[in-house]
Amino acid sequence: MDRIKEKMNQLRLEADEAATQNEELKAKIKALEQDNLAKEQEITSLSHKNNVLESEVENLENKNKDLKASADQGANHSTEVETLTRRNQLLEEEAEEADKNLREVNERLRQTDVKAGHLERKVQALEAERDQWESKYEEMAQKYNKVQKDLEELMAQIGDI
């Protein structure tokens, strides 16, 4: 019986140890479950944060694409501006040349007008002189005709004598 008592005591001790170990393991399980729950919450939080960051990365990549496109467009615009600047410079040079030619033509036209004025005055003077000569000619023709008539009359009178 002592052996049975001893065995019972041993079994009780083992049961107490098993119960203690069971409680310790339950506490460990509870702690591990809480730790697991905390880690799941952290995982959920990190997943959300990861999604937010991925969305932000996507937005930044889109902005990067837009900025690259804008930079390319800016380069194209600067090329166009250079081309237009050169074209504008050529047009300005052509305009200056045309303005110079216009001034020269205007000067020649003014000189031609002055010459035309002088020539018109000469023509008028020559026409006036011609008119004078014509009137002198007519006077002389009349005098000639009168003298011719007088001569014919004189010849007729001399012929009658």
Score class of each variant (00 low, 15 high):
residue 26 K to Q: 13
residue 118 H to P: 02
residue 151 L to Y: 04
residue 32 L to I: 10
residue 79 T to D: 10
residue 17 E to H: 07
residue 27 A to K: 10
residue 66 D to M: 12
residue 68 K to Y: 03
residue 149 K to G: 08
residue 115 K to N: 10
residue 123 V to P: 00
residue 145 N to Y: 06
residue 133 W to H: 10
residue 146 K to S: 11
residue 6 E to L: 10
residue 58 E to M: 01
residue 5 K to P: 00
residue 4 I to M: 09
residue 156 A to I: 08
residue 160 D to I: 01
residue 142 Q to L: 08
residue 129 E to P: 00
residue 110 R to V: 11
residue 74 G to R: 14
residue 114 V to P: 02
residue 106 N to E: 15
residue 119 L to G: 04
residue 14 E to K: 01
residue 28 K to I: 09
residue 51 N to A: 09
residue 88 N to T: 07
residue 90 L to F: 09
residue 72 D to M: 08
residue 8 M to W: 13
residue 104 E to K: 12
residue 149 K to P: 01
residue 154 L to A: 13
residue 95 A to Q: 03
residue 25 L to Q: 15
residue 68 K to C: 02
residue 148 Q to S: 06
residue 89 Q to K: 10
residue 54 E to K: 14
residue 21 Q to T: 11
residue 102 L to R: 07
residue 99 D to Q: 09
residue 29 I to L: 14
residue 19 A to C: 02
residue 97 E to Q: 14
residue 1 M to R: 15
residue 103 R to D: 10
residue 43 I to L: 09
residue 52 V to Y: 04
residue 136 K to T: 06
residue 72 D to N: 12
residue 75 A to C: 07
residue 73 Q to P: 00
residue 43 I to V: 05
residue 143 K to M: 01
residue 45 S to Q: 14
residue 1 M to C: 08
residue 80 E to M: 08
residue 92 E to F: 04
residue 149 K to W: 03
residue 47 S to T: 15
residue 154 L to H: 10
residue 7 K to Y: 06
residue 62 N to W: 04
residue 26 K to C: 05
residue 21 Q to H: 07
residue 108 R to H: 01
residue 17 E to C: 04
residue 31 A to P: 00
residue 64 N to P: 01
residue 24 E to Y: 08
residue 83 T to F: 14
